[in-house]
Write a protein that binds this DNA or RNA. Structure first.
Length: 265
DNA sequence: AGCGTCACCCGGACGC
DNA sequence: TGCGTCCGGGTGACGC
């Protein structure tokens, strides 16, 4: 995604570019409508802007909206049409002016949506945790609606948008909260701490351009700054206790047993 | 409503 | 070397 960032030297802005046609090497990339209809409709439309909502990339078009979800191994690159393709390029939007928007996706989990009304997908999402409107009171209100384990609640995109497995573990460590705490057991102080932890973890990820995990290199450096994620057995950066791992809601979960006690105080 | 489980993917890591 | 198996990310579907 770094190559899409506005102002990258040598790269034009996507806004204003017209899509001539699409190459679908993995038709199941297209979530909706059918690949055939997607192919027919996308041609001739113009990208007006580039935005983000939760984990979705949002491309408002002159007619309708294109949403892209990268899932775990997806990457978007804006490249000259003549440049060599990536081995895992699955979907390619051929743009005017000799550019291509290439969706590389080794594990084929990503999705594209072409929608008249993007709220069909986006309206299910909770608030953006980095926006000013998201205060600790917002967080308290969202969590109080449920009585469930804290970590699955944070991963639920309808509670808060944008937190994945890495950021959830990092945020919980920063806030000193055990992943299995119940959402309705948190004190005001703990909610505040969690609010700070979520925002700090996300900002840190942004600072380092996100993370690259496994062998799927995506440009970021955040993996070298994880406090607990995939650091099982290593010393907690805060207290030195070995980082523990457990499975919560089918997800690998990393935490410090000392900084994040199961019982509050 | 919340929770568990499975499916979707694939290439790297690991064990034999 | 060549197998087999496990792993993990986010989400939706399904059953309880």
């Amino acid at each position: 995604m770094r190559s899409l960032r506005e102002g990258q030297p040598g790269l034009p802005s996507l806004a204003g570019m017209q899509i001539e046609r699409v190459t679908l090497r993995w038709p199941r990339h297209i979530a909706t409508p059918s690949p055939a209809v997607f192919r027919r409709r996308i041609g001739g439309r113009t990208i007006c802007d580039v935005r983000r909502r939760g984990k979705y990339l949002v491309f408002p078009l002159d007619r309708g909206t294109l949403l892209i979800h990268l899932k775990m191994s997806g990457d978007l690159r804006l490249a000259p049409a003549a440049s060599p393709p990536d081995r895992f390029d699955r979907t390619v939007l051929h743009l005017r002016q000799g550019w291509e928007l290439r969706f590389s996706d080794a594990r084929k989990f990503g999705k594209l949506y072409l929608l008249d009304d993007p709220s069909l997908v986006l309206s299910r999402l909770g608030p953006e945790p980095l926006e000013r409107a998201f205060t600790h009171r917002t967080l308290a209100r969202r969590l109080a609606r449920h009585r469930r384990q804290l970590k699955p609640a944070l991963l639920d995109q309808s509670v808060i948008a944008g937190l994945g497995n890495i950021y959830t573990d990092e945020a919980l460590h920063r806030s000193g909260l055990h992943p299995l705490r119940s959402t309705d057991s948190l004190t005001d102080g703990e909610i505040r701490s969690l609010w700070r932890g979520i925002r700090a973890a996300l900002r840190n990820g942004l600072r380092y351009d996100g993370a690259s995990i496994d062998w799927v290199y995506r440009g970021g450096d955040f993996q070298n700054h994880f406090r607990v994620y995939q650091r099982t057995g290593e010393a907690c950066p805060a207290c030195g206790t070995p980082i523990a791992r457990m499975v919560v809601g089918q997800r690998g979960t990393h935490f410090c047993p000392t900084c994040q006690p199961e019982q509050s105080s």
